[in-house]
Design a protein around this nucleic acid. Structure first.
Lengths: 94, 94
DNA sequence: TAAACTAGTTTATAAAATAAACCAAATTAT
DNA sequence: ATAATTTGGTTTATTTTATAAACTAGTTTA
C-alpha cells in the first residue's frame, strides 16, 4: 500500500525551497526567490508554512542597511524531507 | 535550475493511479479505489482528468450484470510519468 | 417488493496555490 | 533636497485544485 505523502512537502514550491536548503544549509530569501522564480508573495507564504511546521527557521537581520531574511533547515525538516523521499519512491517505482 | 513538474502528475491521488497503471497495464476502477483508499467521487474526477490529458484510456463494460470501468495507461501517459520521475529527481537529490 | 448494496457521476464545499496590492525603507536621478 | 524607482518583503484577494457530499442507475438480498 502506498504511504500517505506529507502534504506540506508535496508542493512544488515548498519542495524546491527544501531542496535548496538541504544542500545549502543557510539561504537568503532573495536567493531562493531567484532560484525558484517564485513571486515574493508566494514565497513568503510558503516559507511561513514551512516555518510553522518546524521544518525551517527564519532569521531576520540586515545586510548593510537592507533587510535580509535567511532560512535554514531544521533537523525535523531534514527528517521530514528524507521520509518524503522514501515514501515517494514507491509511487515512482524507484 | 529545477524543472517545472507536470501539475497533472503532481497530485497524490493521480500519481497513485498512474503508479498502479504503470505496472498493471489494465486496472479496474474498483481495484484502484481499494488500493488508493480514495472515495469513488474523487477517483472519478481524477481519472477523468488523466483521461482528458490522454494519459490513460477508460473502457466501460460489464462484469456479469454489473457495470465495470477499466483503465489502461497510454504511451503518452507512460512518457509523462517517466519525465515526471526524471524532473522530480532534481528536487529529491537522487 | 422493499431495503441495502454496487458502481459509479455530478455538484458543492473546503483547502491550497498563486497573484495582486500594499508597506517601509533604501537608493538613484533631477 | 526631493521625487521617482528599486529592494525586500507581508498581507489580502483571487483562482485553482482537491475533496466530500449528494445523486443516479441498476443489482442483489431479505
Amino acid at each position: 500500500m502506498l504511504k500517505k505523502l506529507d502534504p506540506l512537502l508535496h508542493s512544488e514550491l515548498r519542495l524546491a525551497i527544501m531542496s535548496l536548503l538541504i544542500t545549502l544549509e543557510k539561504t537568503e530569501f532573495t536567493y531562493i526567490k531567484e532560484q525558484t522564480e517564485a513571486t515574493a508573495g508566494n514565497l513568503s507564504v510558503q516559507i511561513t508554512k514551512l516555518e510553522n511546521a518546524g521544518y525551517l527557521i527564519v532569521k531576520k537581520g540586515f545586510k548593510g542597511k537592507m533587510p535580509q531574511t535567511t532560512c535554514s533547515i531544521t533537523k525535523q525538516g531534514r527528517e521530514a524531507f528524507e521520509k518524503y523521499v522514501a515514501d515517494l519512491k514507491d509511487y515512482l517505482k524507484l
